Amino acid sequence: MRTQVAIIGGGPAGLLLSHLLHLQGIDSVVLESRDRGYVERRQRAGMLEQGTTDVLRESGAGERLDREGLVHHGLELRFGGAGHRIPLTDLTGRTVTVYAQTEIVKDLVAKRLADGGDVRFETEVIGLDASAPSVTFRDTAGEVHTLECDYIAGCDGFHGVSRPAVPGLRTFSREYPFAWLGILADVPPSTEELIYANHDRGFALHSLRSPQVSRLYLQVPPDEDIAAWPDARIWEELAARFATDDGWKLHEGPITDKSITPMRSFVAEPMRHDRLFLAGDAAHIVPPTGAKGLNLAVSDVIVLARALTERYASGSDTLLDAYSSTCLRRVWRAEHFSYWMTTLLHVDPAADGFALRLQRSHLDYVASSEAAKTMLAENYTGLPIG
């Protein structure tokens, strides 16, 4: 059993990489441990940078995105009982788009299967060799196979098998003293653009999933028990943290999903070992405040697809050799922006009055300074890839 590129992980990173390689005539096999239904239902972020939407459209995978995605030209910082709009498009010429990761995965799965792609669900990878590249896996019948290849792409997430196969990794991490309680609610959004709210009781985010579905988040302690948050308490707390002096109202509706997500930053270096390349959450994690996780995974595989295309077209290893350093420049910029947004907007339970006053001063500056708004807008809509 042989292919040119073995891709471990059938999330958006692995599927997009397979699709981009297919467009260049490069064969791949995608090995995903979960079943198709699970992968297509897995709830994740859905705020897409301009570069992410561009590559989906240019690759022919953006038809439903263009039809159903919600394009945003700005966002709101809300604190001190008032809202302050950041005009993203006016400042950068770029937009962001709300389109759920679950929908991207559905689009890419359908695209790969329609194109005759080899995507294998419920396939457990039990070993890999990065030097004489091959991946050993167990299929749905329990039989063990070895897939020989030229290169391996580890797109299997934070808990996958790819990163542990890289010797000599340096890792950098930070745990945050809070988590997000996130809900999906069958209620039209109360806003046309995202609201990032800083309140004495903690951070809150009003996002959107569709014209009929809202996605909202509350800052909670990292060890919080979700059973302590009945629906009525969630809506009461959201209303308090979003409250403004002009009487803005939050729409309430049936909550269909709730979960608590811890917040951390993590980077592994390098993102390559021999013929194994790490991409997405296998190499880095960001707190969700900056909406960078999915977009970083996309930028990784764009860089990797370009490098593999050059290798097969010309025999040059130049871009492959630069893969890790190229990706890490963007990773660390996104890590800093996500850290900055997180510390700017959340209430640190250990913060004293001095620290809280500094935070409010910083928020005032960002809301009033054209330079500060531009910095936020440039990072939020996405810096150049590669």
Rank of each mutant, 00 (worst) to 15 (best):
Pro87Gly: 03
Val105Cys: 01
Val105Lys: 02
Val98Glu: 09
Thr89Gln: 06
Gly116Ala: 09
Thr89Leu: 00
Thr102Ser: 03
Ala114Thr: 13
Ala82Phe: 04
Val96Lys: 06
Arg112His: 14
Gln101Met: 05
Ile86Phe: 02
Val105Ile: 01
Arg94Met: 05
Thr89His: 07
Glu124Asn: 14
Val98Phe: 02
Asp107His: 01
Val98Met: 09
Gly117Leu: 08
Thr97Gln: 08
Tyr99Pro: 06
Phe121Glu: 05
Ala100Asp: 11
Val119Thr: 09
Ile126His: 08
Lys111His: 11
Glu124Gly: 06
Val98Tyr: 04
Val98His: 03
Thr95Gly: 03
Asp118Arg: 14
Thr97Trp: 08
Ile126Glu: 13
Thr95Tyr: 10
Arg120Asn: 09
Arg120Val: 09
Asp115Phe: 03
Ile104His: 13
Asp118Phe: 03
His84Thr: 03
Asp118Leu: 08
Leu113Trp: 01
Asp118Thr: 05
Ile126Ala: 05
Gly83Tyr: 00
Ala82Asn: 12
Arg120Phe: 05
Val109Met: 07
Gly116His: 12
Glu103Lys: 12
Ala100His: 01
Ile104Arg: 05
Thr89Ser: 01
Val119Gly: 07
Pro87Arg: 03
Ile126Asp: 08
Glu103Ala: 10
Lys106Val: 03
Val119His: 06
Val119Leu: 08
Thr89Cys: 00
Val109Tyr: 11
Tyr99Leu: 10
Thr89Gly: 00
Ile86Asn: 02
Val119Ala: 06
Leu113Lys: 12
Gly83Arg: 11
Ala100Asn: 04
Arg112Phe: 12
Ala100Phe: 00
Leu91Lys: 11
Gly93Lys: 02
Ala110Arg: 15
Leu113His: 11
Lys106Leu: 11
Gly117Cys: 06
Thr97Ala: 07
Tyr99Lys: 08
